[in-house]
Design a protein around this nucleic acid. Structure first.
Lengths: 169, 169
DNA sequence: CAAGATACGTCAATATGGCTGTCCTAAATG
DNA sequence: CATTTAGGACAGCCATATTGACGTATCTTG
């Protein structure tokens, strides 16, 4: 990143390695980075009459087809009432469908419909463009560092769930 | 991070370096990392009858004393009506005070009161603990990578504002 | 089998934090 | 003087979350 000068780079080499400035830089880059990434899909979502809450559900269902409602609740960490509304919206628009669990019929296994897959792909491509640009700019080594720091912010208990997502469905 | 196995580490060494899995890992770690960091102060905020919006204002006023309302608006990227409510709440609780700009008397220069400084410090210490843990876990090199990727998510136009914060007030 | 736990759904009420649109004053600037 | 700028205020709306209570179908277990 051309914009970062040597002095900024060096701050991490200070004796403590945990100077307040370093912490604040992390808090702020995390806040602004997260904000800009999420805002980048608001327009496309609005054209569908959907909000960010819908995207989060769509995203995780895309990521792990046949996800159950309770697993989705754990990922999103919201109440089932809040999720219920979101899932109803998505079902009404025929973006998500569900079927009873084959082994436990109380469960609802969630999947995207064809239209849901298409929408999620469109939204993901915006995220990908932004993220790919940031990855490119920073380089491979930076990317692994980025992952590791963020994963260190996630409590042990939840980290397993997050890693499970990445091992595939 | 002991929990990351070699296979996960290696994914970045794939030919394209921008495989979908790498992008999704970034999106997800960013989402979960951000969520957990911000949730970590909700309880303390609730004891003061404040929400996250109040904290964001408090944070940036702490970071750059004598910030003007319009500069704060640019950082937060919300409408002045929304910010107005938040600033009124903070003023009522005597956490923030303002004085007219010495050169342009239309401006309001915002500062934390003593109580505001104390509260922000308490909130910041929670953020610091979490962030310091993540930094420690990941190591120095990871931390600079973390910063660089996130800064690559911020549009050029805003990046200057963010860097200005870190150069000190 | 009966009892209890679990998965999911729903109703009602409430809070937070955004938004738009409109109108206002005071002060700076041309 | 006219315009622009910094800030504020009002009304109303929307999205997303919350809690608590309650209902039903299904699975599990003593």
């Amino acid at each position: 990143m051309a914009v970062l000068n040597v002095q900024r780079e060096k701050s991490v080499a200070s004796p403590t390695f945990l100077a307040e400035a370093d912490i604040r830089r992390g808090v702020e880059s995390l806040y602004f980075g997260y904000s800009h990434l999420t805002r980048s899909i608001d327009e496309e979502l609005a054209t569908q009459g959907l909000g960010r809450a819908h995207h989060r559900a769509l995203y995780f269902i895309a990521r792990q087809p046949d996800l159950t409602v309770s697993d989705l609740l754990k990922l999103l960490a919201i109440t089932k009432q809040s999720l219920g509304r979101v899932l109803n919206d998505l079902a009404e628009r025929a973006l998500v469908e569900s079927r009873p669990g084959p082994v436990d019929r109380r469960q609802k296994l969630l999947r995207l419909t064809k239209a849901g897959v298409a929408l999620e792909a469109r939204l993901f491509s915006s995220l990908r463009d932004k993220m790919a640009h940031a990855y490119d700019n920073a380089g491979e080594a930076a990317v692994t560092g980025f992952w590791h720091v963020l994963e260190g912010l996630i409590p042990e208990s939840e980290l397993d769930r997050v890693i499970a997502l990445q091992r595939g469905p």
